[in-house]
């Protein structure tokens, strides 16, 4: 039996933004999954490719480049685990398009053959939050501090929709991220239009910036009204828009934004400095102070 079969193992698909802009997300992912006993491998991936641009321009190009990525994991007989809704949506759809149509299989394999690759459709594309959710008990066991934060959960679009991805989840009333943040000792607060878009997708972030900012402004207003300490997301692209575009708005919300892997890392006792939390544009120091306080509280109880 190979090593991969003995331990739960996935190929980590970090995505451009996590590895090239928010290394804190990549770093916390490695640490968190190691602590819950899941092994992550690396493969030579390209951009997923970005669905907002490439799928909108040419679906077949998007599918073929997506499948090329999946083939890298297929060669080691492991499934792909994404930490971004954009990557997840891209690779999941490329995989489905490939699996569902003989014409697409022939098209992709003819292109891939020219660079010495082929694919049989057998690899699955997963989202890290589903893997974390499966390991909720391990998450509770690895937790070193009850964070005690009020968090505004932001699902982002392409984890939930199109809902064919998750037949078991009601896309109008999901309870996946909530379960994880509650396991970390956080309270998930409700807010208006909680499940709506951040405003960055579909090529709008770069192509129609003003619209993206207006949608973001509406979102942040609703989050602020909820009294949450921070936003918790599962998508570095949403994360980037929520964090970095805040400074472009007239209203200064200054709401900290954390990727779920970062939040989990902090609950597992990793020091913010070791996660490079300072790479966030909106300071996370208030959050860190609150966590420190919670930690002191739980230490003195013992």
């Amino acid at each position: 039996m190979s090593e991969a079969e003995m331990q739960e193992t996935y190929s980590l698909f970090p995505g451009c933004i996590a590895k090239n802009m928010y290394p804190s997300i990549e770093k916390s992912t490695y640490t968190v999954f190691e602590k819950i006993g899941v092994k992550l491998l690396n493969h030579r991936y390209s951009c997923c490719p970005a669905p907002g641009v490439f799928r909108g321009y040419d679906r077949k190009t998007h599918m073929t480049l997506g499948v090329r990525n999946i083939v890298m994991a297929r060669q080691d007989n492991v499934d792909v685990m994404t930490i971004c809704n954009g990557c997840y949506g891209s690779l999941w759809e490329a995989n489905e398009m490939f699996r569902k149509s003989k014409e697409n299989q022939d098209f992709v394999n003819e292109k891939l053959a020219k660079i010495g690759l082929s694919y049989d459709g057998k690899t699955n594309v997963l989202h890290f939050v589903d893997v974390l959710h499966k390991h909720l008990e391990d998450v509770r066991n690895a937790k070193e501090v009850d964070l005690g934060l009020k968090v505004a959960v932001h699902y982002g679009c392409h984890y939930l929709r199109p809902s064919e991805k998750h037949p078991d989840i009601n896309p109008e009333s999901p309870h996946v991220i909530e379960d994880v943040v509650e396991a970390l000792g956080c309270e998930s607060v409700d807010f208006k239009n909680k499940l709506s878009c951040c405003g960055a997708g579909g090529g709008v972030w770069s192509g129609a910036e003003e619209l993206g900012l207006r949608v973001l402004d509406e979102k942040l207003k609703n989050v602020r009204d909820s009294g949450a300490d921070c936003i918790v997301n599962i998508c570095p692209f949403c994360h980037m828009h929520l964090d970095q575009s805040q400074g472009k708005l007239e209203e200064r919300y200054k709401i900290p934004v954390l990727h779920l892997s970062e939040l989990t890392g902090l609950a597992f006792g990793i020091r913010p400095k070791h996660l490079a939390m300072h790479t966030h544009l909106i300071s996370t120091r208030d959050i860190e102070k609150k966590i420190k306080k919670s930690k002191k509280g739980s230490d003195s109880e013992e």
Binding site: P14, C16, Y30, R44, L275
Partner: peptide, 28 residues
């Protein structure tokens, strides 16, 4: 560069500081 958002020298150094390989194990 095989990436939609390429790596910058700033992030390269941050990666090293927090114990990630300076260059990601990627196609780029």
């Amino acid at each position: 560069q095989a990436d939609g958002f390429p790596l910058s020298p700033d992030v390269e150094s941050i990666r090293s500081v927090i114990g990630l390989p300076k260059h990601p194990h990627d196609l780029a």
